[in-house]
Amino acid sequence: EPLWIRPDAPSRCTWQLGRPASESPHHHTAPAKSPKILPDILKKIGDTPMVRINKIGKKFGLKCELLAKCEFFNAGGSVKDRISLRMIEDAERDGTLKPGDTIIEPTSGNTGIGLALAAAVRGYRCIIVMPEKMSSEKVDVLRALGAEIVRTPTNARFDSPESHVGVAWRLKNEIPNSHILDQYRNASNPLAHYDTTADEILQQCDGKLDMLVASVGTGGTITGIARKLKEKCPGCRIIGVDPEGSILAEPEELNQTEQTTYEVEGIGYDFIPTVLDRTVVDKWFKSNDEEAFTFARMLIAQEGLLCGGSAGSTVAVAVKAAQELQEGQRCVVILPDSVRNYMTKFLSDRWMLQKGFLKEEDLTEKKPWWWHLRVQELGLSAPLTVLPTITCGHTIEILREKGFDQAPVVDEAGVILGMVTLGNMLSSLLAGKVQPSDQVGKVIYKQFKQIRLTDTLGRLSHILEMDHFALVVHEQIQYHSTGKSSQRQMVFGVVTAIDLLNFVAAQERDQK
């Protein structure tokens, strides 16, 4: 057995438009009618409502009807409940999964919650491996369901041993009777949507819809739904939504950006999952974080739909894509998950301010006199920076000697690579993860907040409520011999709460 199987392995699926269902090699399930009293909570997966979006479509000038398939009504709160249950049931049916076995899954959280929910009911041990950027709410729900959680670096490539995929496979090879159901490759993922989600949409719309818009992560949702719609409703256009920084969209030119990270969760990847059939997507749109969270908040405030950030991405694209539809036509959007997962993220004004998705003037509360002053007023001194090749031991000596707790790590040209902190280095040394002679590049981390000289002290204040420091950066445009230009970030300084307090105190003292 291989040590790991690539999540982007070539698909062996034989589905073709027009091929009889009787030739399918898979076990198919028909939607079942729910009894009045459910035998367990797993029976509350599927049969989610279709809700008309009344205000947002009109606000953006849509002539067509805009409908939302509300997947956050599933038992675990997301569309991923469907595939989690289906993968477990299919693994039980073919004898792969037996009582007492362990389920391991690399996930952005929602599939993990679905699997942990099913594992709690069915009696399996469950280990979820997820990147650090995923919300604390997801972690809390997983723990409450009895799952064990392993976190991995957000910026690790999918084929790196440190990625959530790599760590999951390492655990599988170490733990007896453990299984990775593997949402990236498992046919049960798109089949769950082909058999149930798509049929529900067709039934709820009486077979009449002209466009379907869905955000894409593993691709199982859009693949399964689109294949069924292509068979039953061939005139329906399928629109895929991919965040900026991901590479799922086609044509490839759409993916060209210097951005590699994004805040919206559960969609987009740096590889093409095996289950994603991009041939059934008629057109791709890219979405960005700001519009995703703005539209998610709009869905909550104006439509009462308590959905997550990827739902915002989907609707932001839908109001663009559906401009081509006329009166009497219908566009369906998939709202994948609930706001429950993001209470401390985009639902929080403070978080939105820190990330730059909300401006101070958007909030009406009274601010102190210094709130709208610029960061450049602080008069920061030149920063202490270190090269990635310097040793951890030497870096600790320098920081202690100069009285700093942290320093930016830059390359020879001064471009920011990340940050090192005294606390992080000492804990890594004590844990045996690094040696004093190791290069400081081994303990770089990139989960820090950046701020510009033109940003306000109010925004800085919000950042420092949650973080010990902020890195002050400025952009530099560099022209190359080819005539092309590129933008790079340079370090201007490091600012802490002490710097802000000293500035405010000094100004008030001078005024007296």
Rank of each mutant, 00 (worst) to 15 (best):
T385Q: 06
T261Y: 13
V386G: 05
D438V: 15
D242F: 00
K484R: 04
G418K: 05
L353F: 12
E412D: 14
E377V: 11
G441Q: 12
R509H: 13
G328E: 09
G483C: 14
P388Y: 09
G328K: 08
S428N: 11
R459K: 14
G493N: 11
P436Q: 14
E360R: 13
F503I: 02
R278A: 04
L384P: 07
G268H: 00
A407M: 03
L429F: 14
G432H: 12
G379W: 11
C307E: 02
K449E: 14
V339R: 06
G266K: 02
Q507Y: 13
I451E: 03
W370F: 15
L453C: 13
L417V: 15
L380V: 12
A292W: 01
P336M: 03
H474T: 09
E377L: 12
E244T: 08
L353Q: 10
K433A: 13
M490W: 11
T395I: 09
I239M: 09
K402F: 09
S381A: 12
R400Q: 14
Q259I: 13
I390V: 10
L417N: 10
T454M: 14
P383W: 06
H468L: 15
V386H: 06
N502I: 10
M352L: 13
Q489F: 14
Y262V: 05
S485P: 14
A296W: 00
R340V: 01
C307L: 03
L457G: 01
T496K: 08
C392Q: 08
L422N: 09
E253V: 15
T454E: 11
D337P: 04
N288P: 13
H372K: 04
K345W: 00
S313P: 10
K442Q: 15
R297D: 00
D282Q: 08
A318R: 01
E258N: 14
L384E: 10
T482V: 11
E508F: 15
F404H: 05
F271V: 03
A413Q: 15
G309F: 00
H462P: 06
A413E: 13
G266I: 00
P336H: 05
P336T: 06
P243T: 05
A301S: 04
E252K: 14
W371P: 09
S427E: 01
P368C: 06
R488N: 11
S287P: 06
G328P: 09
P383M: 08
D277C: 07
V281L: 12
